[in-house]
Design a protein around this nucleic acid. Sequence first.
DNA 1: ATCCCGAGGG
DNA 2: CCCTCTGGAT
Length: 211
Amino acid sequence: MNKLKRTEIFTRLRHDNPHPATELEYTNPYQLLVAVTLSAQATDVGVNKATRALFQKVRTPQALLKLGETGLKEYIKTIGLFNTKARNLIAAARILVREHNGEVPATREALEALPGVGRKTANVVLNTAFGQPTIAVDTHIFRVSNRTGIAPGKNVNEVERRLERCVPEAFRQDAHHWLILHGRYTCVARTPRCGSCTIEDLCEYRHKTEL
DNA sequence: ATCCCGAGGG
DNA sequence: CCCTCTGGAT
């Protein structure tokens, strides 16, 4: 896909989503870290329900340690992988209190050193909590990139590299949100809503029979 | 059956 | 690079 076409796509996606930062319910670093950690292999609806209840009581790593692993599981027991997530979040809270003064670090290295925090979660925290020009390639962005032809790749790492190469830093933070929102509401996994898609004429999907 | 705003390990 | 983990939704 050429640069002109890609630029036009992002222009339209921006028009579709004028306030991209509202995509996530939380921008507070710690709440964001917890919410994104819980979101692995879980629906956003289920995660948002759990975090809304949890954050009534817990907004800091200190508060989470007070709640304890068993207490935490009560809030997230309907979410996939909740045993692992609870264990990781407690372990991460200990590190935050002991090594980072109870604050969420703003560097990729420190973030990814936390149990349960990988590249995707670190990128979201850097993007949304700390305003860094990262693109966190989740399943939505991976699908949209490949289906449309914006930045196709075999795996998430390749898609991330290609996106960072073709999206200028100046609007990379917003582009991350445009892509996710497009994937969630229009370019959905099973049955994409091409009828209401504003970039259909530029999308490579209609020329294929799969993906 | 397949997918969901992944991480960790083989 | 690919698999598995695990619960709910579609």
